[in-house]
């Protein structure tokens, strides 16, 4: 089953990214194909330059692990990146700058779509 999850709020300020990662990991472990679409301030979840304090979780690193080890797909709204000054070279490995056409494709082609409201 193809499952897509949209996140809109900034990581660390809110819990959406953490929840999305837990859902994604549980779904990947069951053999589902999972894509996370980062929209608005959520794009910072794919910023490799994020540096949380040592006792806190590293969200971009966790996303990168799921991409590399479990095949998670991470798409990022390109316009949202530009608005927030997030350069492509700062992205975690495997995350893809995309846009609303890709979100539309995810909605059209996924078997399930979830979103965390702003």
């Amino acid at each position: 089953m193809k499952i897509a999850i949209q996140v809109m709020t900034p990581p660390y300020s809110y819990q959406d990214m953490d929840s999305a990662i837990k859902i994604a990991e549980a779904a990947l472990n069951k053999g589902h194909e999972v894509a996370i679409f980062l929209f608005a301030d959520a794009v910072n979840a794919a910023n490799s330059r994020v540096k949380p304090i040592r006792v806190d979780r590293n969200i971009p690193k966790k996303l990168e692990e799921l991409i590399k080890e479990k095949g998670l797909r991470v798409d990022i709204c390109g316009l949202c990146m530009e608005y927030r000054g997030l350069a492509e070279e700062a992205l975690i490995e495997g995350a893809r700058p995309s846009g609303l056409p890709e979100l539309a494709k995810l909605i059209a082609e996924s078997d399930r779509f979830l979103s965390f409201s702003a």
């Binding site: 499952i3 859902i23 549980a26 779904a27 589902h32 399930r112 979830l114 979103s115 965390f116």
Partner: peptide
């Protein structure tokens, strides 16, 4: 419920409100 159970609910429900 845990996240595995949530994924089962996702599997069972085609529609989404959220």
């Amino acid at each position: 419920i845990d996240y595995d159970a949530l994924v089962e609910l996702i599997e069972r429900n085609e529609g989404f409100v959220g």
